[in-house]
Design a protein around this nucleic acid. Sequence first.
DNA 1: ATTTATGCAAATCGTTTGCAAACCT
DNA 2: AGGTTTGCAAACGATTTGCATAAAT
Lengths: 152, 152
Amino acid sequence: MTLTDRGGDLHGAAAARLGDDGQRYTRNRRALVEVLAATSRPLTLPEILERRHDVPQSSAYRNLAVLEATGVVRRVLSQDEFSRYELAEEFTDDHHHHVMCSHCGHMEDVAVPDELEAELERVAEDLARRLDYSLDHHRLDVIGTCADCRRR
Amino acid sequence: MTLTDRGGDLHGAAAARLGDDGQRYTRNRRALVEVLAATSRPLTLPEILERRHDVPQSSAYRNLAVLEATGVVRRVLSQDEFSRYELAEEFTDDHHHHVMCSHCGHMEDVAVPDELEAELERVAEDLARRLDYSLDHHRLDVIGTCADCRRR
DNA sequence: ATTTATGCAAATCGTTTGCAAACCT
DNA sequence: AGGTTTGCAAACGATTTGCATAAAT
């Protein structure tokens, strides 16, 4: 059974993770997790605020930092001026990569073939060992120009 | 024959590229290209300035932007607060990826096996086609904690 | 009660920009 | 001469933070 299979228990899992760190799962934090769970791409802070007008900007930043520190959220950097946020893989049970527009910074989640994924994992482990890093994860971005930006 | 095989002609190639865009290959721009050519990892602006005390910060930023716009330099984002800069692949004749520390943002260049590279290229083309992006390049990061940060 | 989170306003800091002087062709 | 680049200082803007109040346990 996975987190996403358990359906409504995403919030339970997030609350438990925060609790382990002595943090509370508050209204604002739940709102952020809900917004991120409802998209298939990392969102910028303005995009998050658009979806939840009741969360003030500073609280969004502060709580995203808490969620990131506890491993519920991952921050991903794109090519534009904004950071983007997505749920950590552990909370979506979905390993994915990104296609990113080098002009506007837009990102979308994509999956790659299992065979490639397995090879990426092997190579990542090998590189981390050789350079004396403790491996966390790998990240693959396909970078190009999206249809909207080509039109401009 | 490649650019790097031609040895000292990196500057010639950079000058030609800038010339195509009606830009000059000035003292400061040459200094930046020299610094970037001398490392095997993307450098932050402070790291660049450390190596060339004669280039003022604003000129460094301004010229890196020009070099990036003309395709001589690529800006890569890491996990810390700084952008990092490296020579574009066309000017180093070296396709590489990065191992990155999620704590301090440090990055190092790494190569991956040709077989993986070929598969990455195939998958990147396929994804770009399916999502209607014009493919530019792909980027693979291995993310972990470096030995220095583990010690802290 | 006590600790933690909130939200406004102000500060921070990497990066960008205005502008007058210096440079190149 | 006519355009570009320079470099200082000031501005910008995404993100962070101080602090008094509100919420959670």
